[in-house]
Amino acid sequence: MNRTLYVTDMDGTLLDDTSRVSPESAEIITDLTRRGALITVATARTPATVSPLLAHTVTSLPAIVMTGATLWDRNSMRYIDTRFISPETSRLIRAAADRHGVNPFIYTFDDKGMLTVYHNGERSIHDDKFINERMKLPLKRFHIDEPAGMNQSIPNTVLFFAMGPCERINALADDIRRSIDCSVSNYVDIFGKDVGIIEIFAPEVSKANAVKRLARDINADRVVVFGDNLNDLPMMRIADLSVAVDNALPEVKNAASTVIGPNTSHSVARFIAEDFERMQ
């Protein structure tokens, strides 16, 4: 029997226009998983939001979270195979962010493995909205304008994340790519076209590399991925079959092997169901 690994992005792909997994999608994926389908997600999100979003969706594989910097075992509720940014690289990134007037969120793990997020300095309305929507989530702790957040090389740093004007974010991304050995992703926020987002990880962190490691670990002989945004392109390039939803960016649709319906029509779950049946 063919062992196909199905990996789907969340926002704009698996999630509908209310940023939820629809009941129909949850039911389809749960049923397929119980029949042996190998399905997971690959997302920039952290488990703090992934876990509640997938609360009614059964999957057997760890979720690829934080753009592949770590995996999240939903059953044991622990992080697996985390890639940390070195202290020296952290110092260089913070210096570059200061030069471009960007105040990033710094994601770290505390001694108990809790995801801990620091932010110091000026905040935009987007930053405040981001914090307020996540402040009470049980799997994430925010520390705002605390002295510990001024440490230039906070231990166990996994991610630098920032939002801001596209020109400022893009300039920071270009600067870092030229001078610092790390993984950088910058793109336009799907919820605000004038807002740029940057994510900075340890070298070689990507959804693509995490998908390849997971496929190897479970002995998958075929990989099918689903996406909608530019940060999905690397994993789409390494897949045997790459699928774009109809609402995807033009660059993503052009790069995909096939284009399906929009994220508002349970399209990912329905495609997986059809493909799973065909491969049996």
Results as ranks from 00 to 15, higher is better:
45 R>C: 02
17 D>S: 06
248 A>V: 01
271 F>Q: 01
229 N>V: 05
209 N>I: 11
48 A>S: 13
271 F>C: 02
270 R>T: 04
156 N>C: 09
105 F>P: 00
95 A>S: 09
245 V>K: 08
270 R>E: 09
234 P>F: 06
57 T>S: 06
36 G>K: 13
61 L>C: 03
11 D>A: 09
197 I>M: 15
45 R>I: 09
199 E>D: 13
40 T>N: 06
31 D>R: 15
235 M>K: 02
169 I>Y: 02
27 E>T: 07
207 K>N: 04
125 I>S: 12
114 M>E: 13
146 E>S: 03
239 A>T: 12
132 N>I: 10
220 A>T: 15
70 T>V: 09
63 A>W: 12
125 I>L: 06
113 G>W: 06
231 N>T: 05
159 L>G: 03
215 A>H: 03
99 R>E: 00
69 A>G: 10
65 V>A: 03
204 E>F: 12
156 N>L: 06
3 R>N: 15
121 G>C: 05
79 Y>P: 09
90 S>N: 08
252 V>Y: 06
104 P>T: 00
77 M>Y: 10
247 N>G: 04
217 D>I: 09
147 P>I: 04
22 S>H: 07
100 H>W: 01
45 R>L: 05
150 M>T: 13
277 E>T: 13
178 R>P: 03
115 L>H: 02
144 I>K: 12
191 F>L: 12
104 P>E: 00
119 H>M: 08
51 S>F: 06
269 A>F: 03
161 F>C: 10
226 F>Y: 03
51 S>Y: 10
40 T>W: 07
104 P>N: 00
105 F>Y: 01
161 F>I: 04
149 G>H: 06
29 I>A: 05
250 P>C: 00
19 S>V: 13
242 S>E: 10
87 P>L: 13
3 R>C: 01
151 N>K: 04
263 N>A: 11
184 V>W: 01
187 Y>N: 14
55 A>K: 15
186 N>Y: 14
168 R>C: 08
271 F>D: 01
188 V>L: 12
101 G>P: 01
193 K>H: 15
167 E>T: 14
280 Q>H: 15
104 P>V: 01
186 N>T: 14
140 K>F: 10
133 E>T: 08
39 I>M: 00
66 M>D: 02
87 P>S: 01
263 N>I: 07
192 G>Q: 07
69 A>M: 08
19 S>W: 06
235 M>N: 03
133 E>W: 11
113 G>M: 11
4 T>Y: 15
190 I>E: 11
151 N>M: 08
180 I>K: 00
191 F>A: 15
264 T>I: 12
178 R>D: 15
188 V>W: 08
177 R>W: 11
13 T>D: 08
181 D>C: 14
190 I>P: 05
86 S>C: 05
90 S>I: 02
93 I>P: 00
202 A>L: 07
225 V>C: 09
88 E>V: 14
42 A>G: 12
276 F>R: 13
121 G>A: 07
46 T>K: 05
52 P>V: 06
252 V>M: 11
173 A>V: 11
88 E>W: 14
86 S>K: 05
222 R>D: 07
233 L>F: 02
212 K>C: 08
115 L>G: 04
68 G>P: 04
218 I>Q: 08
202 A>H: 07
74 R>N: 14
168 R>E: 12
108 T>K: 08
201 F>D: 03
71 L>F: 15
273 A>Y: 10
258 T>M: 15
35 R>W: 09
4 T>P: 07
196 G>A: 07
270 R>L: 02
123 R>A: 05
198 I>K: 02
41 V>E: 07
221 D>E: 13
141 R>I: 15
